[in-house]
């Protein structure tokens, strides 16, 4: 029962964040890239004040997977870096905390481009 409730929360929070982004896109005609940057900034602010952690505890992957979670872990990483390693930790902590995801995206994309070509869009 508890597990089902958890998944409902994940679905609701993840879905809601995406629906808000969609709504902003429809109403203001902002391009996808700008929406991503906007949500990233929101995430960094929420992460900087350590507020997003509560949402993550409540909704798990529903809060970590959206780009807001990425922004918050960048900010949190920088704070943790500053606490443990001082000034250089503050500079590099954000990247360090998210480095695995970024590295996998870049590395795998680089690898995969040798094996595939872009497909024609049918519609």
């Amino acid at each position: 029962m508890e597990a089902i409730l958890m998944y409902l929360k994940v679905f609701a929070v993840g879905g809601l964040i995406c629906a808000i982004a969609e709504l902003i896109m429809i109403k203001t005609k902002i391009t996808p890239a700008r929406i991503l940057v906007l949500f990233l900034m929101i995430g960094a602010v929420l992460g900087g004040f350590n507020l997003w952690t509560y949402v993550i505890q409540w909704a798990g992957a529903g809060a970590t997977l959206p780009i807001i979670g990425f922004g918050s872990s960048l900010a949190k990483g920088a704070i943790e870096g500053a606490t443990s390693n001082g000034f250089f930790g503050a500079l590099g902590g954000g990247l360090a905390a998210t480095s695995a995801g970024i590295a996998v995206s870049i590395g795998l994309s680089y690898l995969i481009c040798f094996f595939t070509n872009s497909h024609t869009k049918k519609n």
Binding site: G47, G48, L74, A90, L91, G93
Partner: peptide, 8 residues
């Protein structure tokens, strides 16, 4: 952003 947060 993360650098700004970190430095602050």
């Amino acid at each position: 952003y993360s650098m700004i947060v970190g430095i602050i």
